[in-house]
């Protein structure tokens, strides 16, 4: 039985606004196995980015982690001090945030940005050795040594993203979280960047959490998929099952809405709109748009159950 590297129990994150509490993440639970690639798929506002920010304790006011436990290395991250958590970030869990390639410091050369991360976490090596480490990191993400002396604006989108991956793996973390790592990239470059991520994961023997709205990307990269809707984890299954025999109606309708390259067909959007997170409907959050909804769905929130071995879903009809 593969060990769990990360375990999240009952995570609740609310954003407190003048109009009410926005329930961005509602009772999310899952575990991440060693060496696994876990994907979280969902549309905007589904809570996926909030969830990963919460894991890194990077939720800013008016957001607050209201409840839950996050276990890494036998420690509940939510009980650590600020300084202890700072040490966990990058060294044990690293994140490649959304739009990170646009957040590279424009006035610093790439090597300095990577070195910064190393030095900040206590690496006390002579300059030459730091430079060697940087070159090694660049090589592992498929960038030529010349890139070290370049500024971000001299790099293409794909190269910038790979530089961000280099920063993320610089301290050899056990968990790498990638939040929409390829959203602004062309499809050919996207594949190269994802292959880079897969390769560094193998070299580090790490686990990856991929957050994205592109179901195709998720399908091709991960081992298991968690589907999020209105802040809740509605399904968690092995990737093959998600695409061949998914359980939750939302998952099924989401997959049906994706344009295929096999054959032309009618466009099948999901009618209606996702609910406002500060005004969730009673019962199941999806019931207003679900073609199979019954009375129970409108009154009682479905809990997540293991419907098949390794497949969890939150739906009364299963």
């Amino acid at each position: 039985m593969t060990a769990d590297v990360l375990r999240v129990h009952g995570l609740v994150v609310h954003y407190h606004t003048p109009l009410g509490a926005v329930k961005a993440a509602d009772n999310v639970s899952f575990s991440l196995k060693a060496g696994e690639r876990l994907g979280f798929a969902g549309e905007s506002g589904s809570g996926k980015s909030t969830m990963v920010l919460a894991i890194l304790r990077m939720i800013k006011s008016p957001g607050r982690i209201e409840a839950g436990e996050i276990w890494l290395d036998d420690r509940n991250l939510l009980t650590l001090s600020e300084e202890e958590m700072r040490q966990v970030r990058l060294a044990r869990i690293a994140m490649i945030p959304q739009g990170s390639m646009n957040s590279l410091n424009p006035v610093m050369r790439v090597k300095q940005q990577i070195a910064d991360a190393l030095v900040d976490h206590g690496t006390r090596l002579p300059k030459r050795q730091v430079e060697e480490r940087v070159r090694g990191l660049l090589q592992s993400v498929g960038l030529q040594p010349e890139v070290a002396s370049m500024f971000p604006h001299e790099l293409s989108g794909g190269m910038k993203q790979r530089a961000c991956i280099a920063i993320a793996i610089s301290l050899r973390p056990k968990v790498i979280i990638a939040d929409e790592p390829t959203s602004a990239l062309d499809v050919v470059v996207q594949k190269q960047v994802m292959e880079t991520l897969a390769r560094v994961q193998r070299e580090l023997d790490a686990s990856v959490i991929l957050v994205g709205h592109d179901m195709g990307l998720v399908a091709q990269f991960v081992d298991r998929v968690g589907v999020m809707y209105a802040g809740r984890l509605v399904e968690l299954s092995p990737v093959r099952d998600i695409f061949t025999k998914s359980l939750h109606p939302y998952t099924q309708m989401l997959i049906a809405s994706l344009p295929s390259l096999d054959q032309k067909g009618a466009f099948q959007g999901i009618p209606g709109l996702p609910p406002l997170l500060r005004d969730l409907p009673p019962g199941c959050a999806f019931h207003p748009r679900c073609p199979h909804a019954v009375d129970r769905c409108r009154m009682e929130e479905p809990g997540s159950r293991e419907v098949r071995p390794n497949s969890w879903a939150a739906c009364h009809l299963l």
């Binding site: 960038l143 030529q144 890139v147 190269q192 195709g216 998720v218 091709q220 061949t244």
Partner: peptide, 21 residues
């Protein structure tokens, strides 16, 4: 193109030299 299906279309790794200037 990553296909949203159970079939792994990304099976073959892209050929590519390291990126540079």
């Amino acid at each position: 193109i990553p296909l949203a299906s159970a079939e792994r279309s990304w099976a073959t790794e892209s050929a590519g030299a390291p990126a540079g200037p």
